[in-house]
Amino acid sequence: MNAYAMSASPPGGAPVVSDRLARNAMRHASERVIETLLFAAAAVSVLTTVGIVYVLVSESIHFFQNVSIVDFLTDTQWTPLFDDAHFGIMVLISGTLVSSAVALAVAIPMGTVIAIYLSEFANPKVREVAKPILELLGGIPTIVFGYFALLIVTPLLQKIFPELPGFSLLSAGLVMGIMIVPYVASLSEDAMRAVPMSLREGAYAMGSTRLYTALHVVVPAAFSGLAASYILGISRAVGETMILAVAAGMQPNLTWNPMEPAATITSYIVQVALGDLPHGSIGYQTIFAAGLTLLLITLLFNILGQWLRRRFRENY
């Protein structure tokens, strides 16, 4: 309204429109600046990715100038800080894969059953209460889960398996599984609830029971969503750190037996970071090579997940 008053011609002068136009131009300029700032904020996420790739690759290049990639992939010992240094990443990968397998053996069945129950069986009131509780479980800090694995679950397991050592992939993996259940359950439930009601009604009209409908109609229809939730679970398991650092022991051990202690890629990084390695030393570079391996494994599973999702996508 000011602008209107100002644009009126002052007595005895030319009409002043320029003032209003100038303000308009200012407005446009500040809009441009703001848009640029907002874009810069959005670009930070891309910069993060670029930063991650740059840091991991550049440090790994230094590492691979000292260690051949063949040794890295085939050596069966991982002793980077010893005088007789060996750099066989398989040792760490075996720990990561075994603990992840134990975790998924817990998380996938439990998460799927919970999701089917919540989506197809439970009444809405139960669901309203159960979902937040699951979220709380998913929000517990992993270090607390580590404490739980080492000081509660391991002693319990030792009552069943007396030969189980104080640190083991088994107890860390089991607790990791419990930690992942909420992620799997919540995503799977969303996927199953997105299946249109008409499919269920069709099945019921044919005389199917609830369980039959759930397992033979809803689950296949929601399979791409379920696959996505499993892949997220795998990513969590592979990248989980503190539970393993606390409860699985940190000694490198090439094993496929969950009853043994072993280091994983992540717990090795923690172990090195806890010590005092000089910047630029070979030990310092190993954690970036290990990190790159971890990122590649996660990436591999994510690509697989995307492929599965596309392969089994159903459109309604």
Partner: peptide
């Protein structure tokens, strides 16, 4: 599109990798 895909993928990056990023940068 790049920004959007990137945000989705960042959510799946293990937290320890952020630690390595921070250590380097």
């Amino acid at each position: 599109e790049v920004i959007e895909i990137n945000i989705t993928n960042l959510a799946a990056v293990p937290s320890i990798v952020y630690g390595l990023l921070a250590l380097g940068i």
